[in-house]
Each structure stands twice: as structure tokens, then as C-alpha cells.
């Protein structure tokens, strides 16, 4: 009923439709061909090898290796990270603007005010402390809080009748110190943001969840909570459960090698 090339071409067509890799297709095609040749020379019918339905036969062979779906939108993750990075930058601008604003406010109000110079500085720093506190609550991320701490220190000193230039200095120094002190909290936020893109996975270790059979074949690895399609450059067979190191992210696939 069938001849060898009809069977081979039919199978190949089905495998291509299933997006099986070309190396794997050649491999399976050759394997099937040699079987068919052997069967034929032993006087068996080709149907005894593949059955009566070529398509069903081809599908059953690849049962476990249908087309891979690209992992949950990588671009969405990237744009989220970019948005986070933007938010951090905006916070920094707000903080810097606040410092400049407070200093200018103090300089403007100081000499011209009908109050004594010192009293107006008291007002400036007390108001700044609360304004910045509210600002921190609105923005979060510990970028504004240090300046609020600085302003609080300066306002405390202003009631102790410390000279305005010293107050400004204290404000700046204390703000800088607490910014440095709170850096740990702020930078935790940063760490999640800075390694943008898939290359953040490089050099991390992953666990193979679907065996990778060498060059040109596809398996899967689990990295943290994420499951990635994985390939390897070395001609190694990496069995399920093996711990591997990510050497590169190529498109939507991780290139891994045994750790």
C-alpha cells in the first residue's frame, strides 16, 4: 500500500507541523528508514511497522515533544522592571528637589522675615520634616526618609539656637549619613531592578526537569520558580535532576552545561 519514501515523507511532514527540531527529524527519519529497509528485505509488509495510519504513527512517536510555547511573556517582565527603575529615578529626583527647595526656602525666608532669622529656620525645618515624611509615605523606597531624618535633626538643633549655616550643614550631613545607613533597604529594591533582561540568569544554577540529549535537542530546566526551555552546546547528555549552570540566554532558551 505504501512505499518507504511515502511513509518517510508523510512522517516528516507531521513532525514539521509539530515544530520538532530538524536534527531530531533527520534522526527519526533515518531510524525509521533503516527499520523499513530491514523489514522489507525480511519480506514483511511496511504496514506491520507503521500500522495503517502514518499520521497517527508519526504523532505517537513524538508524543512528548510537541511544539514548545515561549515562557510567559518575557517582554512583560522586562517592561515591569523598567517601570520600577523609572520609579526609583523619580524618587531620587523628588528627594533632590526637596533638599534644594528647603535650602532656598530657608535662604529666602531667613533674612526677610519679620521673625528673627532663627525662628523662620525652625519653621522651615519642622515643616520640611513632616512634608518629607509624608513624601516618603507616598513614594516609598527609603529615598525621601533620610532627608526627613536630616530635617528633623536640624529642626531639633534650631530650637537649641544653633546658627542657620550650621543647621544647613547638619541637615545635609545627617541626610547623607542616614541615606547611607538606609542604603541597605533602598538597595534591596535596586538589586531587583538593575539586572534587566534575561542575562540576569547567567551563572546561576538550575535543575534539569526534562532531559537534554545533547546538541540540537531541547529539554527543560527549573530556575527558582521558573521553567525554561534549555539547550546545551557541549555534546553531553544531561539527565533529569542534574544541576546545571546557565552559561547564556539565547532567545527564549537557556544554554546550560553541567555545573
Amino acid at each position: 500500500m505504501f512505499d518507504i519514501s511515502t511513509i518517510l515523507n508523510g512522517c516528516e511532514l507531521v513532525w514539521r507541523q509539530q515544530s520538532v527540531g530538524s536534527t531530531a527529524i533527520t534522526d527519526m527519519r533515518n531510524e525509521l528508514e533503516s527499520h523499513l529497509i530491514d523489514a522489507q528485505s525480511a519480506g514483511k509488509s511496511l504496514e506491520s511497522v507503521v500500522g495503517s495510519n502514518i499520521e497517527r504513527f508519526a504523532r505517537s512517536w513524538t508524543g512528548g515533544q510537541e511544539a514548545r510555547i515561549i515562557p510567559a511573556s518575557v517582554s512583560t517582565v522586562q517592561s515591569e522592571r523598567k517601570a520600577q527603575a523609572d520609579a526609583t529615578r523619580i524618587r531620587l529626583y523628588i528627594a533632590i528637589a526637596a533638599v534644594i527647595g528647603i535650602t532656598l526656602l530657608g535662604l529666602l525666608l531667613g533674612p526677610k522675615s519679620s521673625y528673627s532669622g532663627l525662628e523662620s529656620w525652625q519653621w522651615v525645618f519642622v515643616l520640611s520634616t513632616f512634608t518629607l515624611l509624608i513624601g516618603e509615605m507616598l513614594t516609598g523606597g527609603f529615598f525621601v526618609l533620610p532627608f526627613s531624618v536630616g530635617a528633623a535633626s536640624a529642626s531639633a538643633l534650631s530650637f537649641a539656637e544653633v546658627e542657620p549655616p550650621v543647621l544647613i550643614l547638619v541637615f545635609i550631613v545627617v541626610s547623607a549619613l542616614s541615606l547611607w545607613g538606609l542604603r541597605e533597604f533602598a538597595s534591596k529594591d535596586d538589586d531587583a531592578i538593575v539586572p534587566v533582561g534575561a542575562n540576569r540568569y547567567v551563572d546561576q544554577t538550575a535543575v534539569v526537569t526534562e532531559t537534554i540529549q545533547g546538541v540540537g535537542t531541547i529539554g527543560r530546566v527549573r530556575l527558582g520558580t521558573e521553567s525554561w526551555v534549555a539547550i546545551t552546546d557541549g555534546d553531553q547528555f544531561i539527565a533529569e535532576g542534574a544541576v546545571v549552570r546557565v552559561s547564556e540566554v539565547r532567545g527564549t532558551r537557556m544554554v546550560v552545561s553541567t555545573a
Partner: peptide
């Protein structure tokens, strides 16, 4: 059908129980 061994072989290989290699064949 004889061919039904291939899906099985492919699964066994995928799970790492067997490995394959090529040997030249005359015909």
C-alpha cells in the same frame, strides 16, 4: 505494529535510561 517501539524508546531516552549512538549500516 513494530514501529510502536519508537515512542517508547524516545520516552526511555528522554528520561535518561538509555542512550543512543549511530553505527554505519551496509544498505
Amino acid at each position: 505494529s513494530e514501529g510502536s517501539i519508537y515512542p517508547l524508546l524516545s520516552r526511555l531516552q528522554k528520561r535518561g535510561y538509555i542512550d543512543s549512538y549511530l553505527v554505519e549500516s551496509p544498505g
